[in-house]
C-alpha cells in the first residue's frame, strides 16, 4: 500500500471502525478478527457504563451493539451508550427496562449529541420508555419505573 504513514494509519482505522474498505495487502481474515475483537471490547466497556441498557438487551446485547457500532468510531463509552440508547428510542426499540437509566442521564447531564455531556444547572423532568425521572439541585429521583 502507498501513501504517507498518517494516511495509511487513517485508512486502517476507518476500515476497523467505520466500515470503510480494507486497504490492500492486509490479511482480511485477521483484520476482521481484530475488528470483531474491538467491537467486543467496546461492548464490554459500554455495558459497564450502561448496565441497564446492556442488561435489558440480554443475550442480544452484542448483536444490538455491533449493528449500531460497526460504522461508528468510539466517542467514549458514556457517549456511545447514550447515542445508541437515543437511537433505539427514536426507532421505538428501547427496552422499557433501559428507560430509567437513559432518563437519569438525560435529567442530570445536558448532551446535544455532538459536544461532550455537561452537568445540568436547572431542575429537569425526563420521561423515557415509561420511566419518569426528576433532577433538582443535582439530586435525582426515579418517580416511576415500569416493571421489566
Amino acid at each position: 500500500m502507498t501513501g504517507s504513514l498518517a494516511d495509511r494509519q487513517a485508512a486502517l482505522v476507518a476500515a476497523l471502525t467505520s466500515g470503510a474498505p480494507l486497504p490492500g495487502g492486509f490479511d482480511p481474515r485477521l483484520v476482521e478478527a481484530a475488528r470483531v475483537a474491538l467491537l467486543r471490547k467496546r461492548a464490554g466497556e459500554v455495558a459497564r457504563n450502561w448496565p441497564e441498557l446492556a442488561g435489558a438487551c440480554g443475550r442480544e446485547w452484542f448483536e444490538v451493539w455491533s449493528a449500531w457500532a460497526a460504522t461508528r468510531p468510539t466517542r467514549g463509552s458514556l457517549r456511545d451508550g447514550w447515542d445508541l440508547a437515543r437511537d433505539l428510542r427514536a426507532r421505538g426499540e428501547l427496552p422499557a427496562a433501559a428507560g430509567a437509566e437513559l432518563a437519569v442521564r438525560e435529567a442530570t447531564l445536558t448532551y446535544d449529541g455532538s459536544a461532550p455531556p455537561r452537568p445540568r444547572r436547572r431542575p429537569a423532568l425526563r420521561t423515557v420508555a415509561g420511566a419518569w425521572v426528576l433532577q433538582a439541585g443535582g439530586r435525582v429521583r426515579v418517580l416511576r419505573r415500569p416493571a421489566a
Partner: peptide, 18 residues
C-alpha cells in the same frame, strides 16, 4: 497507535515495522 485522522480506534493497533 490508537487514533488516526481524528478517529479513535478504541484499541491498541500495530504500526508497520518500517
Amino acid at each position: 497507535f490508537v487514533r488516526a485522522g481524528g478517529v479513535e480506534a478504541g484499541h491498541l493497533l500495530p504500526i508497520p515495522r518500517t
